[in-house]
Structure formats: structure tokens, C-alpha cells
Design a protein around this nucleic acid. Sequence first.
DNA 1: TCCGTTATGTTATACTGTTGCGTGGAGTGT
DNA 2: ACACTCCACGCAACAGTATAACATAACGGA
Lengths: 142, 142
Amino acid sequence: MSNKALDAAERLCRSRGLALTPVRKRVLELLLEANAPVKAYDLLAALRPGANAQPPTIYRALDFLTRAGLVHRVEALNAYTACLHAGGRGAAELYVCETCGLVEERHRKGVLPEGPGGFQVSRSVIEHYGRCAACASPAAKA
Amino acid sequence: MSNKALDAAERLCRSRGLALTPVRKRVLELLLEANAPVKAYDLLAALRPGANAQPPTIYRALDFLTRAGLVHRVEALNAYTACLHAGGRGAAELYVCETCGLVEERHRKGVLPEGPGGFQVSRSVIEHYGRCAACASPAAKA
DNA sequence: TCCGTTATGTTATACTGTTGCGTGGAGTGT
DNA sequence: ACACTCCACGCAACAGTATAACATAACGGA
Ligand SMILES: [Zn+2]
Ligand SMILES: [Zn+2]
Ligand SMILES: [Zn+2]
Ligand SMILES: [Zn+2]
């Protein structure tokens, strides 16, 4: 099902001379399957059966994947989520459902908001929390 | 100098029936003096001479201050900064200079960006990183 | 006074992330 | 084949961030 995204990631890495090693690929796979923010140590635990991974393993993999634009860090949750538009340009804008964990995402291709008084923005963190359409619908009322 | 902001905070709390206790007030004072994001344990250390504060003390104070709208958490830095528009409505948008630490701030009073497909946003985290006007000016070139 | 509520102290622990060093495999030139 | 370099990864230890759980204190109203 999500093999499509995995394959796309593999092609993207190859085209840029980046090594999508087994560990990195597996981490990305786990994130794609989750379709929600996942914590580093949860990924680590998921990696355990089969390998004896330690914290640096997972953080290195996540660092690689975020640099490659395949994964976003969700700052307010200390968690990570697979990018839904792998390699997309511009700052990612995340919409995280606090009820079901679903993450939607946009990449702002346009110019970033300019700061007040000549502030030069080089990186933006934009995260919105609330309820996705499904969880907000009448049928899902508390 | 920043007693003005402190007094404003005190009035704001009184008008809302919130208790700006000595610990909370001192923490806010430290943040106002810093005019930059400060880490919880640094605040804790600054609190030490005179009291023997433990981690929960500082986290409880910060929790109170953020709820009261007097302090913002800087998610991507695990740090905290005094609100420059105490009690301002709407989501705060922070501009953090990575060179000198200066924080500028806007509160978006208008409607938050609406999410894709009916996503209902209840809280937004918006942080921009870069260089402030002073650090970006020719005189400050690396 | 008695009691409910809120704020703080205290101890311990959980969670998140990093440093430093060694090893081993893939490439590359000889 | 050999030596060499680079880089990913294993591994151990540790640093930094945050919370749980329980006890104490302080205030105000019944
Ligand atoms: Zn993305
Ligand atoms: Zn949802
Ligand atoms: Zn503010
Ligand atoms: Zn600056």
C-alpha cells in the first residue's frame, strides 16, 4: 500500500546520491504505516525485534530522513511524521488531529511571511492542532 | 525598566482572579530581563540563590504563566520567552534570531488559516528562525 | 474551627536527545 | 588483491527535559 511512497523515496535518494540504507528505509516505512506522529523511542522499540538498536541509531536515521525532506519533526510533540509530499519545496505546514493523530500537510511554496522590521526568516515551524474533518463531524461528537 | 511589564502582568492577573505569586512573578521577571528564550533549567538555576527550587517548581510556574498568556513556549528550542503583548488575543507568531537570541512577536488577531478539508484548528504553533535586522545588517556580517 | 481549594516543597523517576569511540563494509585507486 | 578513505552503524555512557506521586502549607468560606 505505502510501498509507493517508499519507492518514491528510494528513487529520490538515488537521484541525489543519498544512501537509503535498510535502517533508514525501515524507519521511514514505520512512519508511513503510522500516518501519525511517532516518538523516537517508539520507533526504536519497533526496530528492536531483529536489531539491537540504541538511541543514536534512531536519531541518526531521523536526522538523515528530515534532511532529505522525507520526514518532518513535529516540534510541539517531540515526534516525527512521514512527509506526504516527499521532497516538496518550502516550509511544511502541519495539521495534527489531537483526537485521532491524523496528520495533514501543506508545503508553502510561496515566500515565507516576512518578519517585522527586516527580520530575515530562514526556517519556519508551523503546526496546527485541532480536529480533522472526520473527528469534527457530528457523528464523532463526544 | 521592565517593571512596567511586570506591573501590567500583575494587574492582568488581579483582574482575572489569578494569583501571581512570588515564584511566578520572579520567573516572569527573569524572562523579561532575558528578552530571549530561556531554558527551564536555566531559570531553575537562576531561582536557586535564595530558594531551593526543584524542577516541578519551575515547570508549574511556567505552566501558569503560559496559561495566563504571559509567557510563550518556544517549541523548537525547548525554551520559554516572555510575551511582549501580554494577554494579546490570537495565536502568537514568534521570530527568533538565531544569532543574538532576540525574540520579536506578533499576535495574529484574525482567523487562523483554515486547514485542508474541514480541519478545525484550535491551537497553532508558529515560529520563524533567522536573523533579526541588526544581525542581518552589513555591519554585522560574519 | 473545620474543610475544600490552591500553591509549594520534596523525592524519585520517566522521557528525550547527545557525545565519543570503535568496527566493518562499500567504494576507489594502485 | 591490497591499502585507503568514507560513512553508516553498534555500543556505552551521559546530558538535558519533564512529570508522577505524595506531603506540607496557606488562604478563605461554611
Ligand atoms: Zn512534507
Ligand atoms: Zn481526527
Ligand atoms: Zn505573546
Ligand atoms: Zn539578532
